[in-house]
């Protein structure tokens, strides 16, 4: 381990990022600008999350990386290997064992506990971006708490689809103050954001870090007559039979065949190890 400084980034860079993280934790939901570095992977692959993870990792940490809930997809595997190589930290796929979890698009089903850190990869940190293209204006809107526009977006959803059709990156209000983009997690995960672990959000291309300290109040925006609903497919997991986990739709043939399976692979595997079976799993076992 002499080729790289611990966790790839040099110490001054990590220090700069840690300062941004501390500021972000002090002002939950506020987007703190930071000097994002070039990383050995393209923008959109989690450069923000990787920098935040690198800044918080210690040699004693055990790391887990998930992509859409899965431990074995390209993004997850490459980032896990990146930290195995550059930091030499232990890695795991088990949510409960990990001290730092870097995630893209999901919150693990297993409730996180105190002492754990959840790092999100964020493509577009500004929730108002597609409504107001000017950065100067969105900053002013955040500063002055002018968030009426966010509801205009939800209004348009209802007017067009009859219900709030936004199903991911669902805007949330933090402690009654900042409106925040929770990164493209499904809105099913929104209620889980009030958790005991520290949540850090890193956007590499957009050069922003924001954060939620443990047990921060997170409210999903809605209308009185169209309340927020944490929706998911209304079927059990085909492999483990879980009814309370977020499911992915998997196309199984070209004749309309499909099945719904847990998007959190660790959760699904542990349930199957404990003897739970869904409708499809038994055939597989035979």
């Amino acid at each position: 381990m002499t080729d790289y400084n611990f966790a790839y980034l040099d110490e001054q860079t990590k220090r700069m990022i840690r300062r941004a993280i501390l500021k972000a934790l002090a002002v939950p939901g506020y987007q703190v600008p930071f000097a994002s570095r070039e990383m050995p992977m393209p923008y959109g692959w989690g450069t923000g999350g990787v920098q935040v993870s690198a800044a918080v990792l210690t040699p004693e940490d055990r790391m887990k990386v998930i992509d859409q809930g899965a431990d074995d997809t390209t993004n997850a595997v490459s980032i896990r290997q990146f930290f195995e190589k550059t930091a030499g930290v232990a890695t795991t796929t088990q949510t409960a064992e990990a001290s730092v979890i870097q995630t893209r698009h999901r919150i693990p089903e297993t409730p996180l506990t105190e002492g754990q850190i959840l790092v999100y990869q964020v493509p577009i940190p500004e929730p108002l971006r597609f409504l107001e293209p000017r950065e100067t204006e969105t900053r002013k809107m955040h500063a002055l708490e002018e968030y009426g526009l966010m509801h205009v977006r939800l209004y348009e959803d209802i007017a067009r689809h009859g219900h709030i059709a936004t199903s991911y990156a669902y805007p949330v209000r933090i402690e009654g103050r900042y409106v925040m983009d929770p990164s493209p997690i499904p809105k099913f995960d929104n209620p889980k954001m009030e958790m005991a672990a520290i949540q850090l959000f890193g956007a590499g291309r957009e050069q922003r870090i924001y954060a939620l300290p443990p047990h921060t109040k997170v409210v999903s925006l809605d209308f009185d007559d169209h309340p927020f609903e944490a929706s998911k497919p209304d079927v059990p997991c085909a492999l483990c039979g879980a009814v309370d986990a977020y499911l992915d739709e998997v196309i199984t043939d070209d004749a309309g065949g499909r099945m719904f399976v847990c998007s959190d692979t660790d959760h699904c595997e542990r349930r199957r190890a404990a003897g739970h079976r869904g409708p499809v799993a038994e055939e597989d076992a035979a």
Binding site: E146, G148, L149, H151, V152, Y155, I158, D222, F223, D224, D225, H226
Partner: peptide, 12 residues
Amino acid sequence: GERLMATGARHY
């Protein structure tokens, strides 16, 4: 509706 929502209307 934008001005209504900007002044706190939350009933669709």
